[in-house]
Amino acid sequence: MSTTFRTSRQFAAPPAVVFAAIADVERIARWWGPAGFSNRIAEFDFRPGGRWLFDMIGPDGTVYANESLFVSIEPARQVVLRHVCAPHFQLSITLEPAADGTLLLWAQTFDDEAVAAAVRAIVEPANEQNLDRLAAELARGAG
């Protein structure tokens, strides 16, 4: 059984534009997470080794505390982060230039196989919803 969940999405925007929606704290607060969730970001130190501390608020008002560290950042190409609170995982977001924009590759690898199995039914649709929200943010523009 794999502990990595992969998805991809084509966006009609160049990699630099997609990257900008990831790198900007106000923009990522609008689109990060599954449908119906909002974010309250306490810290967003977007640099290798930097910390991202935030609460995701579910549609029912439940608050989910999150802490991640940025492992590596390659502008307009890749962001790798490590989720350092449970459930532990590493997320790699890779941006590849494509004929009509960007191919985004999303790979989320959980540390524990049992945890991955337990969250599979939640994570797979949630990751797709996350990319739906990114698409809406890109359509909205930088404003």
Rank of each mutant, 00 (worst) to 15 (best):
residue 15 P to D: 13
residue 36 G to A: 14
residue 75 P to H: 05
residue 38 S to A: 11
residue 134 L to E: 12
residue 43 E to C: 07
residue 84 V to F: 01
residue 137 E to F: 01
residue 104 L to G: 02
residue 68 S to I: 10
residue 43 E to H: 04
residue 116 A to M: 02
residue 56 M to R: 08
residue 74 E to K: 04
residue 108 Q to M: 15
residue 69 L to F: 05
residue 48 P to R: 05
residue 81 L to S: 13
residue 133 R to I: 02
residue 112 D to L: 06
residue 24 D to V: 10
residue 10 Q to F: 04
residue 62 T to M: 07
residue 30 R to F: 02
residue 105 L to W: 02
residue 11 F to C: 03
residue 50 G to C: 06
residue 123 V to A: 13
residue 20 A to F: 01
residue 75 P to Y: 08
residue 25 V to L: 05
residue 130 N to G: 15
residue 96 E to G: 03
residue 74 E to H: 03
residue 16 A to K: 00
residue 43 E to T: 15
residue 40 R to E: 14
residue 45 D to I: 07
residue 20 A to N: 07
residue 44 F to E: 12
residue 4 T to V: 12
residue 65 A to L: 09
residue 85 C to Y: 00
residue 66 N to Q: 08
residue 38 S to G: 12
residue 126 A to I: 05
residue 69 L to K: 11
residue 32 W to E: 07
residue 6 R to M: 09
residue 11 F to I: 01
residue 66 N to G: 13
residue 106 W to V: 14
residue 116 A to V: 03
residue 124 E to W: 00
residue 123 V to Q: 05
residue 136 A to D: 14
residue 96 E to F: 01
residue 26 E to Y: 03
residue 47 R to C: 08
residue 31 W to Y: 06
residue 122 I to C: 01
residue 64 Y to N: 14
residue 16 A to P: 00
residue 136 A to C: 06
residue 112 D to R: 03
residue 39 N to W: 02
residue 77 R to N: 07
residue 39 N to F: 04
residue 80 V to E: 13
residue 84 V to G: 07
residue 6 R to W: 03
residue 142 A to L: 05
residue 94 T to R: 10
residue 139 A to H: 06
residue 73 I to D: 10
residue 15 P to N: 13
residue 3 T to F: 02
residue 89 F to I: 13
residue 125 P to I: 02
residue 136 A to K: 09
residue 2 S to E: 15
residue 77 R to W: 01
residue 108 Q to N: 15
residue 75 P to L: 09
residue 36 G to D: 13
residue 82 R to L: 08
residue 67 E to S: 13
residue 1 M to L: 13
residue 11 F to G: 01
residue 94 T to S: 12
residue 54 F to C: 13
residue 9 R to K: 08
residue 42 A to L: 11
residue 115 V to E: 09
residue 76 A to P: 00
residue 17 V to F: 00
residue 34 P to T: 14
residue 114 A to N: 04
residue 40 R to V: 15
residue 67 E to Q: 12
residue 74 E to S: 09
residue 31 W to T: 11
residue 101 G to F: 02
residue 4 T to A: 11
residue 86 A to V: 10
residue 12 A to S: 04
residue 73 I to T: 13
residue 13 A to R: 06
residue 14 P to M: 07
residue 87 P to K: 09
residue 143 G to E: 13
residue 66 N to R: 10
residue 99 A to D: 14
residue 123 V to M: 12
residue 139 A to I: 11
residue 50 G to A: 10
residue 78 Q to E: 11
residue 133 R to P: 00
residue 61 G to K: 01
residue 77 R to K: 10
residue 72 S to K: 06
residue 114 A to L: 00
residue 51 R to H: 11
residue 124 E to P: 02
residue 37 F to P: 04
residue 35 A to I: 03
residue 28 I to F: 03
residue 11 F to D: 06
residue 17 V to W: 00
residue 106 W to T: 15
residue 141 G to V: 12
residue 39 N to Q: 04
residue 49 G to V: 11
residue 27 R to L: 13
residue 73 I to C: 03
residue 108 Q to F: 07
residue 118 A to P: 00
residue 53 L to M: 12
residue 101 G to L: 04
residue 32 W to A: 07
residue 66 N to I: 00
residue 10 Q to N: 04
residue 70 F to Q: 12
residue 41 I to W: 09
residue 136 A to H: 06
residue 99 A to Q: 14
residue 63 V to T: 14
residue 140 R to E: 12
residue 93 I to C: 08
residue 14 P to A: 13
residue 114 A to R: 04
residue 70 F to G: 10
residue 63 V to F: 01
residue 126 A to M: 09
